[in-house]
Design a protein around this nucleic acid. Sequence first.
DNA 1: AAGGTGTAGTTCGTACTGCGAACGTCGCTG
DNA 2: CAGCGACGTTCGCAGTACGAACTACACCTT
Lengths: 151, 151
Amino acid sequence: MSVVAALVRSSFLVNAVYAASSRKYGLTPQQGQLLCVLMPQPYGMSELGAMLGLAKSSLTGLVDRTAQRGLVRREPDPEDGRAVRIALTPEGAELVEEFYDETCRRVEDLPAGLGDDERRLLADLLGRVVLDNQVPVVFVEPDEEAAAHGR
Amino acid sequence: MSVVAALVRSSFLVNAVYAASSRKYGLTPQQGQLLCVLMPQPYGMSELGAMLGLAKSSLTGLVDRTAQRGLVRREPDPEDGRAVRIALTPEGAELVEEFYDETCRRVEDLPAGLGDDERRLLADLLGRVVLDNQVPVVFVEPDEEAAAHGR
DNA sequence: AAGGTGTAGTTCGTACTGCGAACGTCGCTG
DNA sequence: CAGCGACGTTCGCAGTACGAACTACACCTT
């Protein structure tokens, strides 16, 4: 299989898994992604837009709906009167932890046909592609999730 | 980087590239995907639903909009009076060829930081994940596109 | 201090996505 | 030929995403 087809089709696969996992927790994939991004720390709307690749106006709606479900909160930025910081509420933090874990389990299972060495190799190669292309941290490392939860 | 984070983040990256490529040709990502699936041959609505992972009702709308743009056509199935075959129109075939090529070029560039051997390795590992998980052919191999075009 | 410029977010209107439920139509089987 | 099941469509609804226009505040220049 060509690199291109492999990348596109695996992306399709991961998306489907992500969507299924979201659905299990009553989230849309976008809301799930928003929550995941916010796991390490709060962000401003502009930062979120840049990370998620969304227009400002798209983000307003997404945050509105997620806030309406009580998962996220708009906090005034202490240093900038115009700005806002989007943070997880306690309920949001709790939910995203379950969602995140579930998603990890499901994605972890995708390369079940690969041996341990091969998985490490895949992680390394794909990780370099991610880093080379400066992909935003839309999904944190498992250990960081534990750290975020710990504090 | 963990396998999970690498898979999720690379998926995010590929999606963004796919969306940008679609946009360049005035397509939504979903319409682009529909056209790509139809490149090798026409399919019925049910088959498309299974391949794209969409509910029947979602597909009706997608096909409606894509047909309205003159890119696909509903043909009656000669063997089944209820069924319909969705096929590319000549304009659709022309457009998808450009879109497909553009997308290939862009995705091809993503692993630019990898050597030839590493790219082959990545393609092999990721290809196995795709095959093991029976991911539908939402994106054909480059040579198949040439073949489809040739006939 | 005053005014201009730019940034942060929101609002609004529009097109598209995706789902489930309910429905008509046709094929197949008993 | 009656009825069951598969093929698609319609409808209503919630969500996604964008650009343009707008408000409010920050910062810089004068």
